[in-house]
């Protein structure tokens, strides 16, 4: 294998990794404000993709308006989930919170299956489906879209968290909920916001990914798992670490598939994760505040 093969592995790793990163980002945003690992995060990614497909089919309004509509719809669904499933169990134990989000993810997946069917669907590429070739390496225009949109989204979120009053409020919640509440931050509203933002981020991930990968009602499970791993690699609670963790996971996977064995690539990714957990549980980019016994 020549150097161009390795470059090709890297490119496909970064493309998939960006999506893992966006999913991981969604996990972190919710975890920071609520302490919940939202197992339904993968479903937001699924919804973004599959709703775009159906809006395009039903309303015939062109690709981009359908996508916008799908992202909007998913964000609203994210809000509804927070209001009707997460808020009622406020203050429950970690394990009950995990179960609720698992319940939500099964519920959302089931509804999608009933209303949109069990089939697999594709979405057109944003701009052309002919690859650009550099030195024997093929890059799809969609990969560039994915990378660009991910970076822009990260920049916007960074601004949001550091420059706006809502962003700062959410960060405050992540440090200390009670104290935040005492200084007049509406914690409930911040939690709602965190769900809105992470469903938005998830939906965008789904929308930009679907042209490359196809979608169906059950793609959310694996994406959720990978996103969760990316969070841990990057350090739970650090949004940008999570995004970086996603890219790293993507590259790791594709290198393993390319160099070692495609059969064991997922096993290898999780193995590295385990080793990392044992050696440095705070993740590569996390602060070392994890408790060990």
């Amino acid at each position: 294998m020549g150097i161009s093969s390795y470059l090709q592995f890297l490119i496909s790793g970064v493309t998939m990794g960006s999506i893992y990163g966006l999913t991981a980002l969604g996990f972190t945003i919710i975890f920071n404000t609520t302490g919940i690992i939202n197992f339904a995060q993968g479903e937001f990614v699924m919804l973004g993709g599959i709703l775009s497909v159906f809006f395009l089919k039903w309303f015939d309004i062109g690709l981009f308006p359908s996508i916008l509509l799908a992202v909007l719809a998913t964000t609203i669904i994210g809000g509804v989930i927070e209001r009707f499933a997460i808020r009622p169990v406020k203050g429950a134990s970690v394990i009950n919170l995990i179960i609720v989000t698992i319940g939500v993810s099964i519920f959302v997946r089931g509804l999608t299956m009933i209303f949109l069917g069990k089939d697999t669907f594709s979405l057109p590429h944003f701009s052309g489906n002919l690859p650009l070739t550099f030195a024997g390496v093929a890059v799809m225009p969609q990969s560039i879209w994915i990378l660009a949109i991910t970076l822009v989204l990260l920049a916007i979120l960074r601004l949001f968290f550091t420059r706006t009053i809502y962003g700062k409020g959410m960060l405050a919640c992540s440090y200390n909920r009670k104290a935040s509440s005492l200084v007049g931050i509406g914690v409930d509203r911040m939690v709602l916001f965190s769900f809105l933002i992470s469903s938005l981020v998830g939906a965008i991930g789904g929308v930009i990914l679907t042209p490359v990968t196809l979608t169906s009602y059950d793609v959310g499970i694996m994406l959720g798992l990978k996103g969760f791993s990316a969070c841990i690699i990057g350090g739970l609670g650090n949004p940008f670490g999570a995004a970086a963790g996603g890219v790293l996971l993507g590259i790791l996977e594709s290198l393993c598939a390319g160099v070692i064995s495609s059969a064991y690539k997922d096993a290898f990714a999780f193995f590295v994760l385990l080793v990392l957990l044992f050696v440095k549980p705070s993740g590569l980019f996390g602060q070392a505040k994890i408790e060990r016994v």
């Binding site: 798992l225 064991y264 385990l274």
Partner: peptide, 26 residues
């Protein structure tokens, strides 16, 4: 694994489960 707490433990056991599953499959 049991030196880890909460979500980290969940992740470690999850990862272990996935690895074993792939092992059965491959």
């Amino acid at each position: 694994t049991l030196k880890l707490k909460g979500h980290y433990l969940a992740m470690a056991t999850l990862g272990f489960g996935v690895i074993v599953y792939i092992f059965f499959n491959e």
